Simulated scan of single mutants.
Amino acid sequence: MQNCLAGRRALITQSDGFMGPVLCEVFAEQGATVVASAEALSDPDAAARVVADAGPIDILVANLAFTAPTTPAAEVGAAEWRDAFAALVDPLPRLMAAVAPGMLARRSGKVLVIGSASALRGMKRASTYSAARGAQLAYVQAVGVEWAPQGVQVNAIAQNFVDNPTYFPPEVQANPRFQERLAREVPLGRLVAAREDAQFAAYLCSSAADCFVGQVFPVCGGWVAR
């Protein structure tokens, strides 16, 4: 790819966490005008405010992060469940409602949700996080097929074992037990590089990917659902 996002204006949410920094870097390299917002979106009014402040946009990258709880399912409380959904799920319809008037009127636009493959395979002690990430993917699939006839493509990346400071900080990567886990569970034998993931995101937000709607793309170093 070279300048595949030239002339596009892209809003990237939570730009200081998860995949935000590398997404901003790669999208700018591909020619996009990047509007980076570091604001948390749990507040009900935040999504509309962030989109309004960004001005007209061609691309929305919903990069939402939340520290995954490790509570056994039988012990999950209402507060944990509510906090996870407030951070990962509730902002999506608010963001979509905010970008809808401009994108649907122009019959053009891209929305990409940076999600997690935890929704694609059962993981012990991850019921709250997996449920919230799964809700993201179901939402993308539904809105994707609804908006496709109006020229707007909505898709998601469901990732795991991708290098990022939120879920795989240096101290985790240096842990011998984590290295053993990589060798055991990931056919690639390493984390997917952050730039590899961001370059794929840039492709999905380019005109070359207009044929994809309501799709969930696993990016997991060969780790698959079972």
Rank of each mutant, 00 (worst) to 15 (best):
A87H: 06
V89D: 09
V89H: 07
P91Q: 11
P91R: 08
P91G: 13
R94W: 12
M96Q: 04
A97G: 15
A98Q: 05
V99A: 04
V99T: 12
G102W: 01
M103K: 05
R106Q: 14
R107C: 13
R107I: 12
K110Y: 00
V113L: 14
I114H: 04
G115Q: 10
A117H: 10
R121W: 06
M123G: 02
M123N: 12
R125D: 13
R125P: 00
T128W: 03
S130P: 02
R133K: 15
R133F: 07
G134L: 07
G134R: 08
G134W: 06
G134M: 02
L137V: 01
A138S: 15
Q141D: 06
A142Y: 08
V143T: 11
G144A: 11
V145W: 04
E146W: 09
E146Y: 09
W147Y: 12
A148R: 06
Q150E: 13
G151V: 09
G151P: 12
V152P: 02
Q153S: 13
V154R: 00
N155M: 03
N155L: 04
A156E: 10
I157Q: 00
A158E: 07
A158Q: 09
N160H: 06
D163L: 05
T166E: 08
F168R: 06
F168C: 06
P169C: 12
Q173W: 00
N175E: 12
F178L: 04
Q179P: 13
R181N: 05
R181W: 06
A183G: 06
R184A: 13
P187H: 14
L188N: 01
A193D: 06
A193N: 04
A194T: 01
R195N: 03
D197L: 15
